[in-house]
Design a protein around this nucleic acid. Structure first.
Lengths: 79, 79
DNA sequence: CGGATTTTCCCTTAAAACAGGGAGAAATCC
DNA sequence: GGATTTCTCCCTGTTTTAAGGGAAAATCCG
């Protein structure tokens, strides 16, 4: 448990009553990947992170000073 | 430009007046990675995505129904 | 305390990302 | 319109991730 992403995943997994193994199966990834995510490894593929977050019902969003004007200029953006 | 991440990156890069090449250098990644990010490739390493977002001053945050109780139980979480 | 479950962390093999070069297309700028 | 810059998209070699097995350490629970 080294960064916020890791602890968020751990927390949600525990709350869901899942083992690393079970979460891995549901997400369609290997068991070691869950272990690595929960231990702060940032060299995972985005794709695999997203699979795990989807199972845990965690959404990812982006945030920046320019974000507001982005939404103003791109009203059709799917976010 | 296929998903929101891709278009957010493109938008911020343009607004920063950077070329793909220049952004790549600032982020410490290869030029092709920027191209791929802006074209929706989700198989990039999280680490590299974070490097790029850092340069563009884009923050990532997480969002879930359990999030609130997470913050209540982990007041020291660095998010 | 014990037994069962789970996690940590090693290994191997296969698949994939990555950087950097390059060249043509496309956009941008006089 | 022509020159210059930027982007798209190929290819090559190197490095890295990912899966799954396995075994010891840790945790859980009756």
């Amino acid at each position: 448990m080294q960064n916020s992403l890791a602890s968020i995943i751990l927390f949600h997994r525990k709350r869901s009553g899942l083992t690393q193994q079970k979460l891995a199966e549901l997400a369609g990834v290997g068991k070691n990947l869950i272990y690595e995510l929960e231990n702060g490894k940032q060299s995972v593929r985005l794709e695999n992170l997203l699979k795990v977050l989807r199972v845990l019902n965690i959404e990812l969003d982006f945030h920046s000073p320019l974000r507001e004007s982005f939404l103003r200029e791109s009203p059709d953006a799917e976010c």
